[in-house]
Nucleic acid binder design. Structure first.
Lengths: 248, 248
DNA sequence: CCCGCTGAATTATCATATAATTCAGTCATA
DNA sequence: TATGACTGAATTATATGATAATTCAGCGGG
């Protein structure tokens, strides 16, 4: 019935994945059971081929589980693949989960300083140029030219790529997705946009091949975010924003 | 034609995914173009439904790209999703990639110390019991009772789970997959199995809620692995095993 | 109380047909 | 010659209908 015109619908299958993914994360099937293949097809006006492919993709993302006779069902939330950008986006967009954002920032605090340390050690000329371009975009955005959020994101992902570590580089899409929401949040709390000087310090350290200094600069930057996110939480079990770390 | 009896074949589709995934990673389609849907179906004796679902899953893993008229093609390696346990396993098993193992260990060095620090801060009683059980399994394996590799893996993944951070916890499958190969490698280089005292130190620190001490202990443990892996590399661009870090 | 059988519901697989997309070539035109 | 619209063919995308395999729930016998 519905035309299924959702963002990222290269075709019917992806549109259905998007639609179902949102519904699942929103908890629409917490009470009533998940429809069978046939029901899904008729409800959405898609063929069984499309329906099956969508279910298979959501299964790959850990949201669904299909077995003969038993039918298809939503898995417990702990099985959901948070490292999948789609899943994370659905979770962060729908019921805006502050705890999840905090946990994401904790992961960034582990990953990004290590990545910039590697970037400082490798110091590819072309990569450096790319990072500088991102910083320039941030400066331009600060003057009102261009999108500050996109520039900020590009800065961080370009550093992940410059690390020369394929695992860090592979996190770019995830960071891209979540950072977009994270920045929107931090900007809403404090009026201030991203701090240019802090980002400059990271770049300078990388350019100077000073790994430890670069890592520290990045750590400071992300700790700021983590404190903003933690402060927004209701008072409960957040004695230390990032336990057991001092002297970066 | 072939019966497609490969590990992890809950059904024909997963079997085909496994088979094609290995072939792609092995570079079987670097010269010749990737077959069309129809060709794949006839070659493997599967219906087009199964073939399409397999192709779709491999597309989700970033290995393939399908467009009408143009056909299906293998993407460049930089698009492959290393965070997918299947993809990583195919890469590590097939052409045993030492650089990739090194990069994976670098990521562990970023993740696991942060995770144990959080685990030490949270200190859930039930989680502690689980970790202790894993250590006991390691001790038992040291006496010849049980599998040492599995116990070692369980120790590390249980700590990821105890971190209380869902992103760290979600890395368990990835660590489970790659650690299995990593341990096999380190054990082959040096005869020694995993160091029990080092693991005990981690657990003790977590039990005592000493986050920084726990992180340090884990860092030491993984640095040992990283040095083993780095030492096995041919002499080239590895001036410092983990640049800009000293005094763990 | 337990074990095996049976039936039914649902996914898994197969087979075939039609639509949509897009690349490569053709041809008219400036 | 260069350029742009048109055309045809190849391939995926979607639809539809049928059969097989799996497994749960319930029944019946021991």
């Amino acid at each position: 019935m519905s035309s299924l015109r959702l963002p990222g619908d290269r075709n019917l299958t992806y549109g259905l994945v998007e639609s179902l993914g949102r519904s699942i994360v929103a908890g629409k099937f917490d009470a009533k059971p998940f429809p069978t293949e046939g029901e899904l097809a008729t409800q959405h006006g898609t063929s069984r081929s499309v329906t099956r492919e969508a279910v298979k993709m959501l299964t790959a993302k850990g949201l669904l589980r299909a077995r003969p006779r038993q039918g298809t069902s939503v898995t417990s939330e702990s099985h959901w693949n948070l490292l999948d950008p789609d899943v994370l986006r659905w979770l962060l967009e729908r019921k805006f989960s502050l705890p999840l954002l905090k946990e994401f920032t904790q992961m960034r605090l582990a990953i990004e300083p290590a990545a910039v340390a590697l970037a400082a050690a490798h110091a590819d000329a072309a990569a450096l140029t790319r990072i500088e371009a991102c910083l320039e975009r941030m400066r331009a955005a600060d003057r009102g030219e261009g999108d500050a959020v996109e520039a900020d994101i590009a800065f961080h992902t370009s550093l992940l790529g410059a690390s020369g570590n394929r695992f860090f580089a592979n996190l770019d899409q995830l960071v891209n997705t979540a950072l977009r929401i994270s920045i929107r949040f931090t900007n809403s709390v404090k009026g201030r946009a991203a701090s240019i000087p802090q980002h400059e310090e990271v770049l300078n350290a990388v350019r100077a091949h000073e790994a430890e200094r670069a890592a520290t600069a990045m750590r400071v930057l992300i700790l700021d975010v983590l404190e903003l996110v933690s402060a927004a939480e209701p008072r409960s079990a957040r004695a230390s924003p990032r336990a057991g770390r001092r002297r970066a």
